[in-house]
Every structure is written in C-alpha cells, then in structure tokens.
C-alpha cells in the first residue's frame, strides 16, 4: 500500500492561512490504513486547526469530508459541491488523490496535508517498511522474493557490498542488509546457487528514469464509441 505521513500542523496552517473556507478531504483507502488521512485523522486535524484559529483570532471555516478513494474521479464527484464551494482544498490523501482533485478542478487551489512516502508493508502495529520502488521490471524471482532495489540502500543487483556486517546495512545499522536477507532466504530454500548468478545491468527505462509512465490495458479501455455511450448515460 501507499504509506504517507501527516505534514507538521504549522506547515499545514501556513498553506491554508490566507483562505477563509477550507475543505479538508481524506481518503478511506491506503492512508486510512496507515493512520494518516482517514476519517479519524481528518476530524482531528480539523479540530486542531479550529483551535489554532481560535488561539490566533483568525476567522476561517474548516469542514472535513472523507472519500472512499480520492484517486478515482467517480468518488471525488461525490463532494464536487463542497470542493467548488471552498476557497482551498486541503487534501489528506496520498498525492495521487490530491492531484486527481487538482486535475478535475484546475481552477481550484489544492494543497497536500500529507507527505506521500513509500510503497510499504505494515510490519507491526504502527510500523511500515518500504519494499518496492515500482521499477517496472520485477526481478525478485532471482533474489528469493526480496527486493534489492528498495531494501538495499545502494539498490545493488549483485550484493552484498563490502559494508554488510552481522546482517546489518552499513548505511544504517538499524536496518537489515537486504543482501544478507536474500542470502538467508536462498539458503533456506536450497537455492544458494542464485547468489552466484550475475544479474546483468537493469534496463531502467521501465522505471521513473524513463520518464512518466502510463499503463494501458487495452481490453479494459473504452473505445471512442463506448465513451460516447457513457457520456450520453451521464
């Protein structure tokens, strides 16, 4: 899932300060699960900002809403009126939701309440760790199912580096060495010969380095004829 963190409240307050009517919009998907922008977080943020306004003597109306998924236009439409009625939208979703609203209503000002951080996995209650960088050409079949791109500080395709020590990474000793973990996993699976396999340089053009990526699934995409039909129905 996408893991995000709330921005510091003073930073949020600065972004919305010049505006009178603020719509705070959260999302019930990833950012609710990672406790950053779900219903509870939206309500707490609205409440804290109201208190700040009271303390600073500022007149500002803040209203909170939460969508099922902020990155999908159909759900955003549900609060269209609230968006159009506001002076600024403070999005409490990952940046995908923020940008969806921004692209749908380009004349409206929309600002992020969260810092979108990682593709992560909940390890235990309250702890999420990064496990994929979305390189667009997955190679973890040869690394025991552990991603060296995301989990090795140097994204080494053939590791470990000389700094691996007692299972920890030299860049941050609090974090396990991905290549140590790969070695242990392959040993467990009796596939240690894969440690000898030399992975060739990766073609990074499938990653973000190749420019913005757009994925099309032809069988799901609507034909122009179908699109016209939908428009008529709407």
């Amino acid at each position: 899932m996408i893991v995000a963190e709330r921005k510091p409240l003073d930073e949020i307050a600065k972004m919305i300060a010049p505006y009178e009517k603020v719509a705070v919009i959260g999302c019930r998907s990833c950012v609710a699960i990672c406790l950053a922008g779900g219903e509870k977080e939206v309500n707490m943020l609205v409440s804290a900002m109201r208190l700040k306004n009271r303390k600073d003597g500022r007149k500002q109306s803040l209203d909170g809403f939460v969508l099922e998924r902020q990155c999908e236009k159909e759900w955003v439409k549900e609060v269209e009126e609230k968006i159009l009625d506001s002076d600024i939208v403070l999005s409490m979703s990952c940046s995908l939701g923020t940008q969806t609203i921004g692209d749908m209503y380009p004349h409206k000002i929309i600002v992020p309440g969260l810092n979108t951080a990682i593709f992560g996995v909940p390890e235990e209650q309250g702890v999420w760790s990064e496990k994929c960088l979305g390189c667009g050409d997955c190679i973890i079949d040869t690394t025991g199912g552990i991603c060296p791109i995301a989990r090795c500080a140097k994204s080494m395709l053939n590791g470990p580096c000389g700094g691996s020590s007692d299972g920890h990474c030299e860049v941050n000793t609090d974090i396990e060495c991905a290549w140590y973990a790969i070695h242990e996993r392959l040993k467990l699976q009796n596939r240690l010969e894969l440690m000898e396999y030399v992975r060739p340089p990766k073609n990074w053009s499938t990653s973000h380095s190749g420019g913005r990526r757009i994925i099309v699934k032809e069988d799901a995409k609507l034909t122009p004829h179908q699109k016209r039909g939908r428009e008529v129905l709407e």
Partner: peptide, 8 residues
C-alpha cells in the same frame, strides 16, 4: 504534540 505544533 498536535497542540504544540499549533502553538497551544
């Protein structure tokens, strides 16, 4: 923590 961030 939230209060401190908002100056309360």
């Amino acid at each position: 923590g939230m209060l401190a961030e908002t100056g309360i």
